[in-house]
Design a protein around this nucleic acid. Structure first.
Lengths: 211, 211
DNA sequence: GACCGATCTCTACAAACGTAGAATTCCACG
DNA sequence: CGTGGAATTCTACGTTTGTAGAGATCGGTC
């Protein structure tokens, strides 16, 4: 997928080796950007190919139909989950700050930030995107965060904290509204961390979400 | 716009009166729904016209280009701002709960909820939408909320509270993730209100957003 | 009943779209 | 050096899109 990496025991009868030029990754990056910027219907094979500097037909050759390309776009870089998981390997009283810093850091990083933006935007535009986002949040992120919490109703707690972060990300990175957009990231973390901490380990109203 | 309402002193030389059949409103409603469901690029004149039961060309006749139709779609029902304004006519210590209840109530109401959903979705898909949403939030909602606050840094406070509500709305109404989606609205209000209250009237870290 | 402006429909066109297959270039291996 | 399979491009088809203008229909006013 990245470079070379040929299986030694496999007979290679000859021919050009796949995945050497990096064009596939360039197409994927361009697709992510276009889907994020213009939505599912707004992004086009021709626009994506132009941004990647290749022929439109090559996009189809690698990824097939537009739906398949879109699905490939939504696959998160594996490091995202890993970094989130590490964020919760800390003392319970530090989780709020660690969660905020890690999540906002993922958005600051151009590589992972573009992927997250693509997911966010397409989740609102495309039904398939909304389903994928829900499955990912429900089955992976929330479950993972919840398993690191000792408190009661861990899934509700994780989700409440996530909603605060999602809202902040909307204001800062998507709509770019002041003063959220130009605050230093340390300031944003300092503002959000106490409330995240409250959601994760503090007291919640009793009557909500009784089993 | 709605019915009749002819100025008495104006000479009406004859001809059919405008705005009688309600078709214009039907087109606008269909456009809102299509833009919300499929994004800016995904919605089409033909699809909107079909849903409204009219000829596609009539949409153009009434609203002009696609951009103009889209802009008309984003005009909020005037009651939205009014209801939000009333929410802050209360004791400072009740603002968190009132804000949460009013804002979530706007999303529960099918009429205003559809418009808000359209704005939300298109703000993420279309640059014009993001600009309009930012202008609305910055110039109207945040300013209005801030003027009702006595505390320091009122705009930052209003925005922080808004981000929490936006995140909650994303989870509950857009992505529809459990358990946020099926909680009673009173439970959601009870969960969010303390943190909103903290943002609106509590202590904020000193070093953030120094003038 | 004749008139007139607003409402609404019919037909059309150029551009861009997703998709498809044939043709060409490139490169590691025998 | 020749060969074969992958990478890449060229060309093209059928459909849908936004936009446009001419014409038909409706319903108050005179």
């Amino acid at each position: 997928m990245t470079t070379g990496n040929a299986d030694e025991d496999d007979r290679r009868p000859g021919g050009r080796r796949p995945g050497q030029s990096g064009t596939k990754d360039a197409i994927l990056a361009a697709a992510r950007e276009q889907f994020a910027a213009k939505g599912y219907a707004g992004a086009t094979f021709r626009g994506i190919a132009a941004q990647a500097g290749v022929d439109p037909a090559l996009v189809r050759h690698f990824f097939g139909t537009k739906d398949q390309l879109f699905a490939a776009t939504l696959h998160l870089p594996p490091e995202v989950l890993h970094r989130l998981q590490q964020a919760f390997e800390c003392a319970p009283e530090d989780m709020g700050e660690r969660f905020a810093r890690t999540y906002l850091g993922l958005w600051e990083d151009p590589a992972t930030g573009a992927a997250l933006m693509a997911i966010m935007r397409t989740a609102l535009t495309n039904d398939q995107g909304a389903d994928l986002l829900r499955d990912f949040l429900q089955g992976r992120l929330v479950e993972q965060v919840a398993s690191s919490l000792g408190a009661d109703r861990p899934r509700l707690r994780a989700l409440l904290a996530a909603t605060q972060l999602v809202g902040a990300v909307m204001a800062r990175y998507v709509v770019r509204i002041e003063p959220m957009a130009s605050l230093a990231i340390d300031d944003v973390v300092a503002l959000l961390a106490p409330n995240l901490q409250h959601y994760l380990t503090g007291d919640l109203p009793d009557h909500a979400h009784r089993p």
